[in-house]
Design a protein around this nucleic acid. Structure first.
Lengths: 134, 134
DNA sequence: AAGTAAACATAGTGCTTTACTAAGGTATTA
DNA sequence: TAATACCTTAGTAAAGCACTATGTTTACTT
């Protein structure tokens, strides 16, 4: 089954929660976990990865927490998913000696990555209409 | 790593080989395997799945083989991949209580499936230009 | 200074999927 | 009836997934 794993889906949910935090206030893991229903320990790992990819910043100690590392219009869903799951849709390189198929798969990858290049701040909009408007 | 597995890639390669068979002549597994470098036994399973999904037809016994079940402009790459790997990019249902995110992921799925809705007969073309032309 | 609460790090675990191989069964033809 | 092709099922090593568990470090509070 080809799919984004829950890790990527959790990651987007967490980033979405941070984006919706009033006044960009710090959010603690337990707050995000409560909101999103993600296991605390697992969410810790996910936020750790997002931090490594410079998508969030953290403050340690009591009253610590997380916030977005930059403005939401500079963060793509693609960034989040690829930070957690690696590059989206890598075509296997050893498979198929056909140049035609190679370039076909490369193109599919590019198209797919384009689909996921949605800004975090635009996530609430209806993409159906957004995509087709002129 | 989010990716189509080799099974899907093999399937497309096999279907592409059948499409390019002169005069839509029957091709045997060993021919396809030799062309595509796919293991004979594995390819057998893949073609068996493609047959169950009515994408190919087979003839048994000596001089048997496979051919496309219908014209190549009525077969989508999406059909092939989903026959072998299940529905493309299913959003997990239990994850996230957010209606916003639910509809977002549903939309991503629809967009992605659209990207893969390429006709087998169009596989050789350049999709980059194809996609953006008016 | 001590206690507490948060982020951070790493190891382990049960489960599922992947990419096959192996071994035989069944249909058709020569 | 022998050969050859498709067809089916079982098994398996390796990897990935979705966590849990356990502890460490940092910083604020008392």
């Amino acid at each position: 089954m080809v799919s984004i794993s829950t890790k990527g889906i959790y990651g987007v949910a967490a980033m979405h929660a941070l984006y919706n935090s009033p006044n960009a206030k710090l959010m603690q893991i337990k707050e995000i976990a409560a909101m999103t229903q993600i296991s605390h320990g697992y969410l810790e790992q996910i936020l750790s990865s997002l931090k490594k990819s410079s998508l969030v910043v953290s403050i340690r100690g009591v009253n610590g927490g997380y916030k977005l590392a930059r403005d939401a219009h500079e963060i793509l869903v693609l960034d989040i998913v690829e930070a957690l799951e690696g590059k989206l849709f890598v075509p296997s390189e050893n498979v198929g000696a056909s140049v035609v198929l190679d370039s076909f798969w490369a193109d599919m990858q590019e198209q797919t990555r384009k689909v996921f290049s949605v800004k975090l701040c635009d996530l609430d909009k209806s993409y159906q209409t957004f995509f087709y408007e002129i």
